[in-house]
Design a protein around this nucleic acid. Structure first.
Lengths: 215, 215
DNA sequence: ACCTGAACACCGTTCAAGT
DNA sequence: ACCTGAACACCGTTCAAGT
């Protein structure tokens, strides 16, 4: 079981979700295709278990974070850590928190995040929504940047900057009367850092939360 | 072409992404499978075009919204409208804004949203990030709730409330010492409204933005 | 308890050929 | 310009059978 999950993760890391095939996995494990069904009832379950497997590692890192005196700063640190883990493994974003039955580590991570809000002066309702919002910013940003890039980028034919640059160029050629906003931000878009974008979105949410909690 | 897109959307609406098959689509169109390739180079392009097709409708609704005097209130109204459209068509979330080459309506929608920020006192950098954050909240929330529910729910064997209730029950049986946060919010989770959850996340982001813009 | 080969019922995509 | 049948190279999943 352990090795099934390890090879699944390795395959996902090396070549993405589309490369995760029962046949490819069986080849790596040196067995038959049907063997995998002894450990797992379906591909869905395999992905849930693989996700929970690596979230276990993230959880350990998260628990190593010290408790600061500002809960919101702690929330930020945890969110950034989770985000970085998903950036490293873009496939995580699509499966994380999808099924807390199978994904018990995801549930524990949710608990760890939420616990930080217990010291804030919020109703249970607000707390629930606050944590959902934070997880949403993380997963939303990560999923956005985790979309499989066109294969010319994967092949190294063009790098990410050149890829963004092509879009930027197309946008610059749009009518400025019709697309004033796009023109306003095209230089920001060109070569932008996804991590920056995530941090900004997170800051807006945390600022809203700070206001709500009055701290 | 028009009818290819219409049938694609109808198929997606009726039975979700997994039901969109070139064979199923050809059957509805009363033609052969290969015919579709005359209109579209790949399934990916088909999905991009179908997405853009319906975003066109959303865009029209969006343009009918009056310009208020508070840009942030306008942004909220637009975000809610986009959210509702994605809730109605959960498959939209996964494809919206994925490729603005093909999805020209998505680009126009992005422009419409962003234009509202031009009246806020922000740098271009902040503006770019603000709009990204808002789109992120919408898509993030919508994707989260758009995951194909387990088929027992689809079959009507259990409704959504009962489905949430089962999770809630499992959570209530967790050790309260180990899961204080989960226990704190389980009653909020049980039977919660996804729209509420989205609105709260949006409010936090908009509050942060209001603070940043000083309005 | 664990694994297998072989089949089943699908997929997206291609292509030579038709009108 | 538009459409077709038939094939190709895959998929996830099942199952009877083996150790």
């Amino acid at each position: 079981m352990e090795s099934v999950l390890n090879e699944t993760v390795a395959l996902l890391d090396e070549a993405g979700v589309s490369a995760l095939t029962f046949r490819a996995l069986a080849l790596r494990l040196g067995g038959g295709v049907a063997s995998i069904y002894w450990y797992v009832a379906s591909k869905e379950e395999l992905l849930d278990r693989a996700t929970d497997h690596v979230i276990g590692g993230v959880l350990a890192d998260l628990e190593a974070l010290p408790d600061g005196d500002d809960p919101i700063d702690d929330l930020r640190a945890m969110a950034v850590m989770l985000f970085d883990a998903i950036v490293e493994r873009p496939w995580l974003g699509a499966y994380f928190m999808r099924n807390t039955d199978v994904q018990s580590n995801s549930l524990r991570l949710y608990e760890r995040l939420g616990r930080r809000t217990l010291r804030l002066d919020l109703t249970a309702h607000q707390r629930f929504h606050a944590v959902s919002a934070i997880v949403g910013v993380v997963v939303g940003s990560a999923v956005d940047m985790g979309q499989e890039p066109p294969k010319e980028v994967l092949d190294g034919a063009v790098d990410r900057d050149e890829y963004l640059g092509r879009y930027a160029q197309a946008w610059r050629e749009l009518d400025p009367e019709e697309f004033p906003f796009v023109h306003e931000i095209v230089d920001e878009f060109d070569g932008h850092d996804d991590r920056d974008q995530f941090r900004s979105a997170l800051e807006l949410t945390l600022a809203g939360l700070r206001l709500q909690a009055g701290v």
